[in-house]
Design a protein around this nucleic acid. Structure first.
Lengths: 199, 199
DNA sequence: CGAGTGATTGACTTAGATCAATGACCGTGG
DNA sequence: CCACGGTCATTGATCTAAGTCAATCACTCG
C-alpha cells in the first residue's frame, strides 16, 4: 500500500524494505545521505540534537509518510531517525532517484507536484491549529477532509489517530463530536461523518 | 528583499509587482492559473469555499512567503486569495516558470530543494504545536531558531509576530519569556535571546 | 504633541487537558 | 468455546494553564 505513483517503476520495484525494531535507529545526524524513505508500518521520529544536550523533535512520520526528502539536496542528514515502534520503511536510494529526476522531466514534475501538495496540506494543518476551539477545529477539519460532495468524510483510521492529527486529546475530540451530533451539525454513520447544511 | 535566488534571472527580473488594497482579491477559486506569487509586503489569506456556505481558511501568507506553488500543476486555483491588509505581491508567470523548470535541470533541482525545505520547516512547526505547555513550546522554538552556535536567537520581527508564529497569544509569550528569564534558562538582549546551558 | 503600536503585567474565566472508570469488541491461546 | 488481555470509544469529575479583558508605559512618527 501507499506505493508512490510518482517515481519510475524501476526505482519503485527495486526499493528495499527495511525492518526496524522499536528504538532502533535508521540514520544519525551527520551520516552521509544515501536514501529517502517511506513509512510502510510503524512510526519514526526525526530528532535534531541542538546545542548542548537539547533534543528537538522535528517530526513524527507515520504509515504512508515519506520523509528525509531534503536528503536529496544535502550531503548529510540533519537529524536522527529513530523508530518509536516496530516499523517497516521502504528505502529509495538517493543516487538512483537523483538520476531519474535529472533524466526525466516528467518524473521531476511529478515530484515537484507532490512536494507542492505536501506544502499545501501542511499549511492547512498549521492554520487549523490556530483555531483554539475544539468544536471549530473539528468542523474546519471535516470541511477540508470532506469528499467531493463536500459533506461526507470517510474515517479510515481510528478516532484517536484523528485526534492526534488535529492536535486534540481523544477525549476532547469525542466530546466535540458528541456535541456536534447532538445539535445536529453532523451525523455519524458506520463509515464516517456527514456534515449537515450550514445555515 | 526576499528575492528568490532559485529562479533564473530572466524570470526574476521580469516579474511584475502587483499592489492590492486591503480586502482586494488576487484570484478566485476556479480561475485559470496564470502565476504563482511572493508576498513582498502585507498579508494574504487563502480561502477555500467548501460545500454550502462553509469557508475554510487554508493559509495566511505573510511577507516573504511564496504561495500558490501548486498552481503550476493545476489548471485552476483551488482557493481564493484575498489581501487582508494592503499588500504588494511579486507575480511569477506560470508559463515562463514551467518552461524554465523543464529546460534547466538546475533550476528544477533548486525549486525541489526549496519545496523540500519548506516541507521540513512546516513539519517542524506542526510538531511544535503538539507541545501544549507555553514554556516548552517557546524553548522548542528557540532551540530550532538558534543560530549556528546553537544558543543565540536573533529577533527580527516583533514579539507579537513570534507569538503568532508559534501559536500563542502575545501575553502568553511575554509571560513565558519572563518566567524563562527569571529562572535563568534564557537571557534577553537588545538583539535577541540567548539560551543558557541545559542541565 | 497626540495617535498608534508594541511590550508588559495584573485579574479573572474557561475550555481543554488530565485522571479515572466503564463497556464494546477482537483476536488468541488454553 | 470461552476467558483474558489489549485497544478503542465514551463519559464523568477535577484542575490548571492559557486565553481574555484591561491597564500602563515606552517609543516612534508625522
Amino acid at each position: 500500500m501507499a506505493t508512490p505513483d510518482w517515481l519510475p517503476a524501476e526505482i519503485r520495484d527495486r526499493a528495499r524494505l527495511r525492518a526496524l525494531a522499536a528504538g532502533e535507529c535508521l540514520f544519525h545526524q551527520g551520516d552521509a545521505t544515501v536514501a529517502i524513505f517511506l513509512v510502510e508500518t510503524g512510526r519514526l521520529q526525526l530528532v535534531r540534537h541542538a546545542g548542548g544536550a537539547r533534543q528537538v523533535i522535528l517530526h513524527t512520520a507515520r504509515a504512508g509518510d515519506m520523509f528525509a526528502e531534503a536528503a536529496l539536496f544535502s550531503p548529510v542528514y540533519h537529524c536522527d531517525a529513530v523508530a518509536t515502534a516496530a516499523s517497516q520503511v521502504r528505502v529509495y536510494p538517493k543516487r538512483a532517484l537523483l538520476a531519474a529526476l535529472r533524466r526525466d522531466p516528467g518524473v521531476a514534475a511529478r515530484f515537484m507536484e507532490l512536494l507542492a501538495h505536501q506544502v499545501h496540506a501542511l499549511r492547512a494543518r498549521l492554520q487549523e491549529r490556530d483555531i483554539r476551539s475544539a468544536r471549530e477545529r473539528v468542523l474546519h477539519h471535516l470541511a477540508l477532509a470532506a469528499g467531493p460532495d463536500g459533506r461526507t468524510v470517510s474515517l479510515d483510521g481510528t478516532l484517536m489517530d484523528l485526534a492526534a492529527e488535529i492536535g486534540l486529546t481523544h477525549e476532547a475530540l469525542y466530546r466535540a463530536l458528541a456535541a456536534l451530533e447532538k445539535d445536529g451539525t453532523i451525523e455519524r454513520t458506520a463509515s464516517g461523518i456527514a456534515l449537515r447544511d450550514a445555515v
